[in-house]
Design a binder for these strands. Structure first.
Lengths: 338, 338
DNA sequence: ATGAAAGCGCTAACAG
DNA sequence: CTGTTAGCGCTTTCAT
């Protein structure tokens, strides 16, 4: 009964000013006489007044909350991005509602609807593709969305990412130059945009430039998990491939350990390049050679971009520089390649 | 301009009923004639009406949002718990505002204040201790809090966890029986409750039952990270210890690799037991022997408990069974012990 | 079973 | 610089 009883009205009464004035000082509006401001501030402190963000949200139509949809928090790649997002969000006084989509289209649609209902000011979407219904949801909503750490089938949405095609091409070239035999590409779904339009293209380019033929059978699809990589290691080895570029670090680690357990020596008999440079790439033995990405920054920049979009009028939202921001990637040679 | 223009009022008007009735059907209140319900539902679908959760929150004083404070999302242990929390939360139609505290007291206090301002219905706190100011914040707020995956200095708060003392004791005993030499304990801060009151006690008990002396120098403090474990490996080896039980898997992996890189053979010359059974323990070579914990369940049960607390009247919140729920832990022997 | 009306706590013109 | 006054969109008695 004694809860949240102190409202802006209580403060106004106690300080002998109007609610508007209290609101002004709370929101740092300069149009308040220092004297009054002090008086109000004193009362606020004395009463331990805390503005109710829900009421504020209803009145202002801004919740200072953003929605973040993530396929799986326990995936180190996404978790690192999430950390970057949260850091910048909290810097800008935003909170983040984090929702796992389990990389499932239906669940993603459902969680986004939930986020919209909660009136989030913006959404950061992590995931490799956006189902049609969700696209409509996005485009009909006015809520800014940025795609972090991937690309999707929706070209309208701004993305923050690295150049997946180029990264893949580099990795494959590196492998082709050092391996006497076929080089495999291990990715999630062949049909997802990031793979179909970028990684597989990069793969083909590298092959072509080296004068090698493209062989569909050398592309392996997996779910992003250590167990999956481990399980498929046998099949990958059996394909005759002597090296692989793997798009998920967990899978790369699974592949490495699976190969090793089956008696295939890495890097002597099989070389591996991972692609996210998460901590797991350092933990394995041998350590995984990997494409490096500024994981934290990918998240941080996404959130930064989102704040811009949230604060820009709808009109100028359309124009501006290219929607995509491409961060630099790198390459770190470790022990899984020669 | 055409945004969110459809409100409960629009629906009411269009369906020729009152807002109250619309509210009733939206909230599944049975007191609505099937006929009217259908009419309203039709209009809702036709207009694509979506209730505004913020307005609802203001009116009902319930946001169906819970706050989750986590030291670091990129720590696999906490991330697994967070997944369990989110799954159950979404099952109960709750959302989770996730905030990183960076294991820092000031930041924790600040984020919790932010969560309170957002009127979360409950809070799940992950972290090893609660600074005094935060305790007051909690106790003066009426917002239910549950501590997940740890214990704190605040005995008032319900916790969901394993028996850290017993787990530690088992691990140490196991080591003592197999090692000819001192056994170290590698933990976070010696002063945190989980270590001081549980793990170190378990350590001492195991020592005592084996007739060994306790030596403070065999307790090592680290931050929870792979790099820290790696760095301290030298010091740990130099201490003369021949085995260690490590409270964080990342640290355990770092210790393992550090030792290996320094030429110390695991498990032949040094044995290690990790304690969270995160994926990391499977990725290292040798694989880490570890205490096993139902990580996902720890989170899931915490959230489940929180829903109970959120729905119980304040009166009966006090009574009820013991506040703590202790989940079973296990032990899995792998390759870092003999 | 349904409606009328009073807020929930705050922001945002608008006036002065 | 400060106060007045409408709402924001929904829930919730209280009548009927």
């Amino acid at each position: 009964m004694e809860k949240q009883s102190v409202t802006i009205y209580t403060v106004a009464r106690e300080a002998r000013v109007s609610m508007a004035t209290v609101s002004r000082v709370v929101n740092g509006n300069p149009n308040v006489k220092p004297e009054t401001r002090k008086k109000v501030l004193d009362v606020i402190k004395q009463l331990n007044y805390r503005p109710n963000a829900v009421a504020r949200g209803l009145a202002s139509k801004k919740t200072t909350t953003v929605g973040v949809v993530i396929p799986d928090v326990t995936n180190a790649y996404f978790a690192e991005l999430a950390l970057g997002i949260d850091d910048i969000a909290s810097m800008y006084k935003y909170n983040m509602i984090l929702t796992n989509s389990d990389a499932d289209d239906r669940k993603a649609l459902q969680v986004v609807r939930g986020l919209m209902a909660k009136q989030v000011d913006g959404i950061i979407f992590m995931g490799h593709d956006i189902p049609e219904e969700l696209r409509q949801e996005f485009s009909s909503s006015n809520v800014p969305v940025v795609v972090a750490g991937s690309v999707t089938n929706d070209d309208e949405l701004p993305t923050v990412r690295i150049d997946y095609q180029e990264a893949t091409k580099q990795a494959i070239k590196y492998l082709i130059e050092r391996v006497d035999g076929p080089v495999a590409l291990v990715v999630g779904s062949k049909d997802s945009t990031i793979n179909k339009r970028y990684r597989i293209e990069g793969y083909k380019q590298a092959l072509q430039e080296a004068g090698k033929d493209f062989d569909e059978k050398l592309i392996f699809e997996t779910h992003d998990s250590y167990a999956e990589g481990y399980k498929q290691s046998q099949a990958i080895a059996d394909s005759g491939a002597k090296a692989a570029f793997v798009s998920d670090d967990g899978v790369a680690a699974g592949l490495l350990n699976g190969l090793t357990d089956h008696g295939v020596k890495v890097p002597d008999e099989f070389q591996i390049i991972a692609s996210n440079n998460t901590k797991t790439t350092e933990i394995t033995r041998p350590k995984l050679t990997t494409i490096t990405q500024p994981l934290y920054d990918l998240g941080a920049v996404s959130m930064r971009l989102l704040t811009k979009l949230m604060n820009s009028k709808d009109e100028d939202k359309e124009d501006g520089e290219s929607k995509d921001v491409i961060l630099e990637h790198g390459f770190e040679k470790r022990q899984s390649t020669r």
